[in-house]
Design a protein around this nucleic acid. Sequence first.
DNA 1: CCCTGTGAAATAATTCACAGCA
DNA 2: TGCTGTGAATTATTTCACAGGG
Lengths: 226, 226
Amino acid sequence: MSADPALRREIPDATVARLPEYLRTLSRLAEDGVLSVSSEELAAAVGVRSAQLRKDLSHLGSYGVRGVGYEVETLALEISRALGLTEDWPVAIVGMGNLGRALASYSGFVTKGFRIVALFDDDPALIGERLADVAIRPLAELDARHAVDPISIGVIATPAPAAQSVCDRLVGAGISSILNFAPAVLSVPAGTDVRRVDLSTELQILAFHAQRKALAAGHLGSAVVS
Amino acid sequence: MSADPALRREIPDATVARLPEYLRTLSRLAEDGVLSVSSEELAAAVGVRSAQLRKDLSHLGSYGVRGVGYEVETLALEISRALGLTEDWPVAIVGMGNLGRALASYSGFVTKGFRIVALFDDDPALIGERLADVAIRPLAELDARHAVDPISIGVIATPAPAAQSVCDRLVGAGISSILNFAPAVLSVPAGTDVRRVDLSTELQILAFHAQRKALAAGHLGSAVVS
DNA sequence: CCCTGTGAAATAATTCACAGCA
DNA sequence: TGCTGTGAATTATTTCACAGGG
């Protein structure tokens, strides 16, 4: 009589950000033949505290068994459902350079419910090449392709200068969920959801931590001169 | 008489996570010839609130001018310094498939103070090939390479099955900062800093938002049946 | 004035600690 | 008994709102 708790209640952003990680670890456990895990075990495998894991999962509903733990298969399915991965998400990737190719063959894309249905690039030398069973087509065919068989998510993997114009084409075709790997900030009309992945952000944060460690360890800062 | 405020005080993680984005936007403004910005303008360009921007920057020190704003160049330099990007970070990339190649040529790596000094892959067909002015070498040469000219950060861009053994080699060579793009959770000794980038996480979060929007808009969940 | 930098207030996220069920 | 699920306490982050310098 009521919809999925995962969809009714507000799930905190911080929790949503961790769900993919839980799902990934559960998938690994399932591959290893593990049938059941306690919050303590799963939390350790993921690298969070068990209380946080339980609190996070409580936002999706009650899928554990008191005194026992969680059934791996069931929990993985419920997290998938909460994330929307049980729906069909036809994905198009634009830009078939090294990054686009890496994404097209990235195991996490294919195994997690995303269906790569179209690959676009305007380089004539690449047109017709097949990757992951999909032929590369020129971007001019986007609208026709979208009309025949709608695309839910567009992934931009072009160099930065092309990103905005590609984005405009995607939006123009009616695609409102866009994942942008190009190092460019895109402007889009309201109602379009753009997320950007910057491959160097984590490297910069790693440098920050390395610097702190170096300072704490040996040569303490530039000056503790009196 | 005291070290850099950026390095003395504790900078909140949430702030550190946003600094690369501020820096990127400032770089773009600098390219466009903008000399000065107010917190209001910069915050709008980045997509955060001006109060948050000012609070974040206050953790690094006082680099603004009251009544005027921030000098773009100066602020970019101070953020770079806080992140440790004014230090030299020699980076090695292991795994020269599509992802490794994409990373080697990723503009964000090179322009943000990271120096790619070594590329490794064990595929004999790739040995000797040059990318971004660096020749691909077999991983067996890691220790020798590290001894001659130390590597600060190792980037793993191999398929998942190879990731743990590559990681062990990096750690064995004495590299304690590792960025892992392989879809695998790595175990490392204490003192090693590993950060993982999962290319599908953001796609999953995008699907989550798309699902919510779909539910809110039209067909409201599976049941609001009385 | 205008805009920064920052205490104080409000909100969000995490952790604790235990009630309650299998 | 063992472990989940969750209120309550704690801690972190964000936002407000304004003092104060240029």
